[in-house]
């Protein structure tokens, strides 16, 4: 049934589509914000989209920050090598077991200045795709040098990638479905913190 429909649909589409039009030359159209990446601009956008931003010197400070959250009573799960959580991802039977975990720690490959989005691939989530959405709060590390100006540069940087999943994550989950009143924390996290780390982050594989 499905096989036959495939031929029917493709036949109908072939017959209906107009003569081939050229693919536009994106470079010639002058796309791009035309500015160098600016972490200050990114911080301003992150603030607008409801994310908290902290600038830390190195991984040690990150460890201290996460430790502090744990001391304050948060269960922590970390996908970042060198940062220990109280819940170990490798020991989970199912990603569903992360329900109820307070804080998720991840590291983004880079951030996008124009919209505050952070790019993470499956390996950056320790292959737990649900991690950025199922915990109550996330904290994402990103290197101070790892920023691109806009989404065109972002995809140029991603290039050929080999993960099974990747996402742009821009701030805490939100909804305005009730009377257009903005509520932070829909199904994903209710609080998001971006840690911009100045030095000492290992290059990502």
């Amino acid at each position: 049934m499905s096989r036959a429909s495939r031929e029917v649909i493709l036949g109908a589409v072939s017959a209906a589509q107009p003569e081939s039009l050229p693919l536009p030359d994106l470079a010639a159209l002058g796309l791009g914000v035309g500015e160098r990446p600016s972490v200050a601009a990114a911080v301003a956008i992150l603030d607008q989209i409801g994310a908290r931003v902290l600038r830390l010197r190195d991984l040690n400070q990150v460890r201290q920050w996460v430790m502090q959250a744990h001391v304050e009573g948060a269960s922590v799960v970390s996908a970042v090598p060198g940062i220990e959580g109280s819940v170990r991802l490798g020991e989970l039977q199912s990603p569903r077991d992360l329900d109820g975990v307070e804080l998720g720690v991840m590291r983004a490959r880079f951030g996008v200045c124009e919209n505050g989005a952070l790019w993470l691939e499956e390996s950056d989530l320790a292959f737990c795709r649900a991690l950025p959405v199922i915990v109550q709060r996330w904290v994402v590390l990103v290197g101070a040098q790892d920023w691109v100006a806009d989404m065109h540069e972002a995809y140029a940087r991603i290039g050929q990638w080999h993960s099974g999943f990747g996402l742009f994550l821009a701030g805490p989950s939100k909804t305005a479905d009730i009377e257009q009143c903005l509520v932070i924390g829909a199904h994903g996290v209710v609080e998001a913190t971006v840690l911009i780390v100045d030095e000492g982050l290992e290059p990502l594989a």
Partner: peptide, 17 residues
Amino acid sequence: ATGQPSTVFASHFVRPR
């Protein structure tokens, strides 16, 4: 759509887990 600079999630599905 909403005047946001981007949606919170733009998830790229390539392979099943």
